[in-house]
């Protein structure tokens, strides 16, 4: 169907980088999202303020600008900070690190809201009941809160992950050799933009399709034993 002019394996390598990038952003973003939600629900106002600023900034600024800022500016800020702590060497921020950082920050900001909603959706009387029968806070978190939060949060998290897969393409702008940039290189060589961008589009489409199927499977698992439609 596609004549790739010998660039097939290059595009395959790019696809692998795109997958790595998405998964790394997923893991770091989940951690950031949980931390953000915990901060937003905490009793300390400085924490709430900090989390509020974080989500407001990320949700209001284009990802492309965040990526450009982290790649070009982040390295300068990071080294200034490290040197002020007395470090003499040089810390590099490569395109992959910058990309994962930017995408994780995005994922984290949106996940913060999803987790916050999911935690709030767990009925308070369940937690009271758990406490009444003498469960410790850690046990409550693990056995009452987490399974339900997971269930409520899954649809939202799945949507964010789909967004992140697509946003990995933006990291090509700072020269990370992911799928989009490889396609761009192939275009520079062969002058066949339609062929290569269409091919890239097909790969992205299959990736999001697989992610959607996976999400559906996870949701079905998380909803075992729950009557009717998922609530969140």
């Amino acid at each position: 169907m596609f004549d790739l002019y010998g660039f097939g394996h290059l595009l395959f390598e790019g696809t692998l980088v795109t997958i790595e990038l998405s998964l790394a952003a997923l893991v770091c973003g989940l951690v950031l999202g949980l931390a953000g939600a915990a901060m937003k629900l905490s009793g300390l106002w400085p924490l709430r303020l900090l989390a509020g600023i974080y989500t407001a900034v990320i949700r209001g600024v284009p990802e492309l600008v965040v990526i450009l800022f982290i790649y070009y500016g982040g390295v300068i800020l990071l080294n200034k900070f490290a040197h002020s702590l007395g470090y003499v060497g040089y810390i590099n921020v490569n395109a992959f690190t910058a990309g994962v950082t930017a995408l994780s920050l995005t994922f984290g900001a949106y996940a913060t809201e999803v987790f916050r909603g999911a935690i709030a959706a767990v009925p308070a009387n369940q937690i009271e009941a758990a406490r009444a029968i003498g469960m410790r806070p850690r046990t409550i978190f693990r056995r009452i809160l987490l399974p339900q939060v997971w269930r409520f949060a899954l649809p939202g998290l799945g949507n964010i992950f789909l967004i992140i897969i697509k946003e990995t393409a933006l990291v090509s702008v700072i020269g990370l050799d992911e799928l989009m940039r490889k396609a761009d290189l192939a275009v520079g060589y062969t002058k066949k933009p339609f062929t290569f961008f269409l091919f890239a589009a097909c790969i992205y489409l299959s990736m999001t399709a697989v992610a959607m199927l996976f999400q559906r499977g996870l949701e079905r698992r998380a909803n075992r034993g729950v009557a009717g439609r998922p609530m969140a």
Partner: peptide, 15 residues
Amino acid sequence: RGTPLLVQIFLIYYG
């Protein structure tokens, strides 16, 4: 919804 906007723009403009 399944493909990046960047790819869509490039396909229409350069493609």
